[in-house]
Design a protein around this nucleic acid. Structure first.
Lengths: 209, 209
DNA sequence: GTAGATAGATGACTGCAAGTCATTTATATG
DNA sequence: CATATAAATGACTTGCAGTCATCTATCTAC
């Protein structure tokens, strides 16, 4: 959480990177503990142990901060998928997004909130990173199923589409109120994500055969 | 825009409904003209010709207002789909969501923004309405393809999932900045919605055969 | 027509959070 | 140690959502 050698200011690039990571970690922790509603820049600053102004030395605005958190989460998801064997591919594709905390809720907000508020420059960087990750997933699917990369690229895109949709529904199921009327139980069902996205994964992988 | 008989106050239920519709219409117009960024309750009030406080007599908060606009749009979409014949079903399923203004952008924000901020009561009403519409679509697909309703219900659900995802990507393509770097052109391509959602529709309808 | 009652409409006000920037001061350098 | 630098600060500005005491259009009873 603190800088090396108890520095109070980050001067070197290494120190700056350390502080940046501390900010990202604190943000992540806060979202996990209290969700997005109460997430204020002041609160994040308090958690890191710096002032609000300092946050703006590391991100141009709140959304850019969240986008950075998302990028890390996405990297983790892809790394998990890359560990899949031919046998476990389908399962991993479904489990990985659900297992990385915050990935789904942030993905759900990616286009509506995060990308809307971010500078063109940051947006482009992000898009390139996303494309890169999509390609890595296509590569994994190609390797494990013996399908030419050309075809798995499209599969990877369709999966991303379905994943986006499933992330939205996952969000809806987390909004679960105290007493849901009986007739609406299924609409708030947990595990909605794995069920719905699992269907999509199976559909797509079958389509490759 | 004004009440019947130049009334300045809506006393009867009819008058109240007229005012409510005027508010929804103004909201819709404003979003179409200027998007969501500059959409403030003050601005909406100005457009309708009432004060801000009045808006809160017709919706408990901003999101509830937007949810009402979404509901209307969704109704329009389903109505369009119901006009489809057996031959035009696939095309209609893709065209309808794209043809109703605001439907896609609002759908993209449905779970992240609108449903988050709304009272349980309103949320439940909305969920029931959504379920009803899903059922109507399932009914249409069943009628036009001669597939038992039991199976088209699942198809309708999968389509909703894909539609959610496609709405997100559609949003991303609208954020198009001035000069997109050449290597990113495809990521901001227009018509992304019809292409991607069209794939999903074909996939699902084929699966019914 | 008038008086009083009802409730729709108003907009100044409050609260809150994002984002700014003049000022302060930790740290590096000679 | 003196000086330069740039990292950190937090009081301040801005902007919007939402509230509520007050006002007044409209209805009702006579």
């Amino acid at each position: 959480m603190s800088l090396p050698e108890n520095r109070k200011r980050a001067r070197s690039d290494d120190e700056k990177e350390a502080r940046r990571r501390a900010i990202l970690r604190a943000t992540r922790v806060m979202i996990e503990e209290k969700g997005f509603e109460s997430l204020t820049m002041n609160a994040i600053a308090g958690e890191v142990g710096v002032s609000k102004g300092t946050l703006y030395l590391y991100a141009r605005n709140k959304e850019e901060l969240l986008l950075a958190v998302f990028s890390d989460a996405m990297e983790e998801v892809v790394a998990l998928i890359e560990q899949a064997s031919a046998d476990t591919l389908a399962q991993r594709l479904v489990d990985a997004p659900a297992d990385v905390p915050l990935f789904l809720p942030l993905l759900a907000r990616l286009f509506t909130d995060l990308e809307q508020a971010v500078s063109d420059e940051v947006l482009f960087t992000e898009k390139r990173r996303m494309r890169g990750m999509g390609l890595r997933v296509a590569q994994v699917i190609s390797d494990r199923t013996g399908t030419p990369l050309e075809r798995t690229r499209e599969a990877s895109m369709v999966l991303m589409l379905a994943l986006q949709g499933a992330a939205q529904f996952d969000l809806a199921s987390r909004r679960k109120p105290e007493d849901v009327p009986e007739d609406l139980e299924t609409m708030f069902a947990k595990e909605g994500f794995k069920t719905s996205y699992g269907m999509a994964v199976r559909l797509v992988l079958n389509g490759l055969k």
